[in-house]
Design a protein around this nucleic acid. Structure first.
Lengths: 337, 337
DNA sequence: ATTCTATTCGGAAGCGGTTCCAGCATTAAA
DNA sequence: TTTAATGCTGGAACCGCTTCCGAATAGAAT
């Protein structure tokens, strides 16, 4: 379980000093003479002493650990965010604890953080945090940064999903499409609903009728959420229900990628036969030529991490609320020749 | 920092018992009467007591935490592995600590684990662990599972990269290609070298000449490693150097995806003008129609996690060595019409 | 030479739990 | 009825480090 199990007691004895002195050396306190420091350092080296992390944490009452909680940290979407988070966390000497909060039952998984002392701060990226959950987060009484949810009492980074979706669909309209479908995940996740609103709004603005048949959710429970499989299945159903569709707006890039696969297999050309628009602008979308809405996930991750560090250092900082402006990325899949 | 700061002392006092009894209730020890248990549970509820994680760890001498160390856990390749790891870890009550070990200087970052008590076990997925590093890992004196490196003294899951690459290139040969290029990352990573060996072997077997011009590394340092950018740049250089190439074997799917993007922009048809073969078989490759070599990353992650749990429970288990058989996945990008 | 002030260090009390050991009250066995 | 076994519980040591406080030493000031 450990490396030799050398404690500061052994070091102190070996160096002929008190343990408090060893501790001072470890935390390079200024109030220790050069000579004794030398002795202690030598003893540490000789004995191969390594401090015990938990003991230090207990004594100092902090864990040097920051947790990031998401629905699924291996999902591509959150993966992009983590790229921005991880280095910042690391550079400031914190460890990174990753946890999935099942969106069905975040309450239970959130309990883990209620264990006192387990993390110094929490980055919570759970779309659609409700009041009940927010209440629990408050109880944490620790630095918390919210991502994807706006709250006045916490630092929060959030998007206007409806505006982004509107922008996306408007782009399709401008390309001359009049029958525009939408692909949504099987279970309407918290992020998909506002995107559907934006979709409707764009149609309204363009004077196009809203046809419920054109919104197609993922079909099987097995492929719930934003999965390629869901997109793959959904577009087939959509085309069956509405063969005259010439463009689709997918609620996420992942769905769009599944749709592209189905279209290819059906022998349909993109964008000639069907224009495809995604949402999230994953890194890979750039290489697929997939048009999308950039949410600046990397940047958000970076700023959120920076902010949480700042807050750890100064807990009474006024909370900040940052709205991220979505950005339209036009690429091959929606560009008319 | 905590929730009310209620300790077992308060609980004990409130319930009128000794702290040892409270502790027994917390760890549901059988040797506590039903009546007292009720009292204690009630007090815990009333006071809103939550155990302090660090204190428990220190006393129990374990951290209930498992760390996974990779070159970059946000890289798609390791991401697939993590999908297999995370649930297993979680279900067994462990927390997951993710760390990047920069391959330039893994020594320094490995030091973190040398802090006694910080993790109970380590999943180390660092291709090309050398003897020096292995020596340090040994010093950890903790359950360690190696992924991607074979060692008799540790549990290890590894691949025969050369065999996989040979299989991939042989497939291209069978499709009738005689001028087959290879795309490698900018800095020859530990995994790319054996794949290049397999490439040569396949050519040799087919009686095709080996032409060094046909192996193209990534160009700029900025896009080192397995990045889409590297593939994007490399294939352009390759085609310039050897315009007669009709098929390429990319050392990773990520490189291949970059190459596909470049080909599309150049107006080249895949697979008609250029067949493309990847390596890793990321989930997304299925949807891109990208032929690849499946390394069963998810499965490896799953098994490695299972094994590390097993080893934590029984440290003197004989170590196992599992070689993963690569599997050829033929898809659109290499299929002759 | 004496007093005062830094500087450096040792001692000891936590941090918040776990766990061993002993003691007491019960109950079963003799 | 006495003795032995059993079930619960309290007390105290301990996990390994931090940090406050007071003491000792040395150098500066008088």
């Amino acid at each position: 379980m450990s490396i030799g199990k050398v404690t500061i007691y052994e070091v102190a004895q070996h160096a002929g000093v008190a343990i408090s002195t060893v501790s001072r050396v470890l935390n390079n306190s200024p109030e220790v003479s050069h000579a004794t420091r030398q002795k202690v350092v030598a003893s540490i080296e000789v004995l191969g002493f390594r401090p015990h992390r938990m003991a230090k944490m207990l004594a100092q009452q902090n864990s040097q650990t920051i947790s990031v909680a998401t629905p699924s940290f291996t999902a591509l979407f959150y993966n992009e965010m983590l790229k921005g988070v991880k280095d910042t966390i690391r550079e400031n000497g914190f460890d990174l604890l990753l946890t999935d909060l099942s969106s069905q039952n975040p309450h239970e998984t959130l309990t883990r953080f209620f264990q006192r002392g387990s993390v110094d701060a929490l980055l919570l990226a759970l779309p659609g945090l409700d009041e009940k959950l927010l209440y629990e987060v408050r109880l944490l009484n620790a630095p918390v940064v919210l991502i994807g949810t706006r709250s006045d009492e916490f630092d929060s980074f959030y998007w206007d999903d409806a505006a982004g979706a509107e922008m996306a669909v408007q782009h399709l309209v401008e390309q001359g499409h009049t029958r525009i479908g939408m692909l949504a995940p099987h279970e309407w996740s918290e992020d998909a609903a506002p995107r559907a609103d934006g979709y409707r709004r764009a149609l309204l603005n363009a004077g196009l009728p809203f046809d419920p048949l054109l919104i197609q959710e993922g079909i099987t429970i097995k492929h719930a959420g934003h999965s390629e499989e869901a997109g793959y299945e959904a577009i087939q159903a959509l085309i069956k229900n509405a063969p005259d569709v010439t463009a689709i707006f997918a609620a996420s890039d992942v769905l769009a990628i599944g749709a592209l696969a189905a279209l290819r297999e059906m022998g349909k050309q993109v964008p000639e036969d069907m224009a495809v628009m995604g949402y999230d602008d994953l890194k890979i979308s750039r290489f697929l030529g997939l048009s999308s809405i950039n949410q600046k996930m990397f940047q958000v991750g970076l700023e959120a991490a920076t902010q949480v560090i700042r807050r750890i250092n100064d807990p009474k900082l006024p909370s900040i609320q940052r709205k991220i402006e979505p950005e339209l990325q036009i690429r091959m899949t929606t560009r008319r020749k």
